[in-house]
Design a protein around this nucleic acid. Structure first.
Lengths: 155, 155
DNA sequence: TTAATTGACATCAATTTAGTATCAGTTTTG
DNA sequence: CAAAACTGATACTAAATTGATGTCAATTAA
């Protein structure tokens, strides 16, 4: 079971770059190169985020993308919902009748509780918060001049 | 994002039936009919659970499946792991190098925390516990004689 | 004018999920 | 014994999701 899909993963990394370079337009090419994300795939991810109002764009030379919202107002949960839909127990229970099956019903109750915890936690994690921890970690290591881009470390 | 797949869902329902009829062999046909689970699909699920030591079987007429372990010793987490694998943040991070990308690394740390909470919670939910709540709910409603099988309630 | 860029799609391949089918072997029961 | 009710073990198929690529038009800065 995977918590984050590639799209969510890439989206968060792109948002972190945009948050770091707030006020400037950053091109898909730049993000793709720095984060090692497939170019065309990333384009789709960015366009999806425009549709959901997280970022804006400027076409043409020197164009690119910019954050539309305050980084502290963008939660990981929001991004997950865009690319993965809401967290839910088991699809069928919402499409069919609720609790037609009693065993399901009892289990559902337990899992809804966990769902709530997960949602609350992902809601708390914001782009602004992550960026803060990122820069804090960076400045704590004076030798590292790598920003948060791909460190090209081979295993 | 779906927390439980059909296989996990069906497996838990089947285990609840076996726990309720402890000591008796219950056939796939019976479980399939009572829980409204596709027969052949359920067979695969049950065989998978044999391989993982949760249940045993008896072939031939009057055969079927029986719990191998104490219902309190079977957690929903165990069942999820059989059919969905372990909860993990994002596939790639484990296959490739850890924390080659710093932004990923910070995010990963946060999500690992949530993962831990989710795992702990699913570990706490057991077949025995669910069955207890089930029978408690049943006896609280004297009118209902439906056990926990499909209540054929149309929406 | 040209190169760099996004907008809007269309398409594709791989993987996962859900479900079906078949045949061989075992066991109870008439 | 023979038939019926079962599981064991696979093989297969279809649909949905995920991950990725390609193309062409429109826009904009230099």
């Amino acid at each position: 079971m995977k918590v984050l899909t590639k799209k969510t993963d890439y989206a968060i990394r792109a948002l972190l770059m945009l948050a770091a370079k707030k006020g400037n337009y950053v091109s898909t090419k730049t993000i793709s190169a720095e984060q090692d994300i497939p170019y065309q795939f990333l384009r789709g991810v960015l366009q999806e985020m425009i549709r959901h109002g997280l970022i804006t764009s400027k076409e043409g030379v020197q164009g690119g993308f910019m954050l539309e919202k305050d980084p502290d107002e963008i939660s990981v949960k929001q991004v997950m919902e865009i690319f993965q839909g809401e967290v839910q127990v088991s699809e069928c229970m919402f499409r069919k009748q609720i609790c037609a099956n009693r065993s399901h019903c009892v289990l559902r109750h337990e899992i809804m509780r966990i769902e709530q915890v997960v949602n609350d936690e992902f809601q708390k994690i914001t782009i602004g918060g992550l960026l803060g921890k990122l820069t804090a970690a960076k400045s704590a290591k004076p030798a590292g001049n790598e920003s948060y881009k791909s460190a090209s470390a081979k295993p």
